[in-house]
């Protein structure tokens, strides 16, 4: 027995990669994350939707680079020494799709438990509730577990 398969048996714990976007913290399901890389040169795609403005080369694959900050109506910051690209694999209409997500900072890989989960509050949020799977608590802070399929579709 081993811990890597814990998700199979313990449905209430969830491995996440904690990233920072602007002032907010987001928890990405670690099962989606393929790798985390330093920023690379981007290629703008004219005519693409604002939240997938460009493509990048990740190990010989050309993949879209998504900017969640645009989706959440947050200001875009210039790249800093802490900026990273989190490469995730999503299932879009039954097809696995690799997508890069710009993060202003990557904190750590950690576990949040469903007992920490807060129902999505309807008030006081300046973003669309359907983009959020749920809110969890991490180190006394509220973090957003985003619904990536919804955000990118």
């Amino acid at each position: 027995m081993n811990d890597g398969l814990a998700g199979e048996r313990q449905a209430d714990a969830m491995q996440v990669v904690m990233i920072g976007l602007g002032e907010e913290k987001f928890a990405l399901d670690a099962g989606l994350v393929r790798e985390i890389i330093d920023p690379v040169p981007v290629t703008k795609v004219a005519g693409a939707r604002a939240f997938v403005p460009s493509v990048i080369n990740v190990r010989g694959n050309v993949i879209p680079l998504a900017d969640l900050r645009i989706r959440f109506g947050m200001p875009q910051l210039d790249d800093t020494a802490e900026t990273r690209i989190v490469v995730i694999e999503l299932d879009l209409d039954g097809e696995p799709v690799l997508v890069g997500v710009t993060a202003d900072k990557v904190y750590e890989v950690t576990e949040i438990s469903q007992t920490d989960v807060q129902q999505t509050p309807r008030v006081g949020m300046h973003w669309k509730p359907e983009f959020i799977r749920f809110i969890a608590k991490w180190r006394e802070e509220f973090v957003i577990v985003p619904n990536m399929e919804r955000i990118l579709n």
Partner: peptide, 12 residues
């Protein structure tokens, strides 16, 4: 197969 591979990678 892809899911299977992912699960195999996740643990022994």
């Amino acid at each position: 197969g892809a899911q299977g591979l992912a699960k195999a990678q996740a643990g022994k």
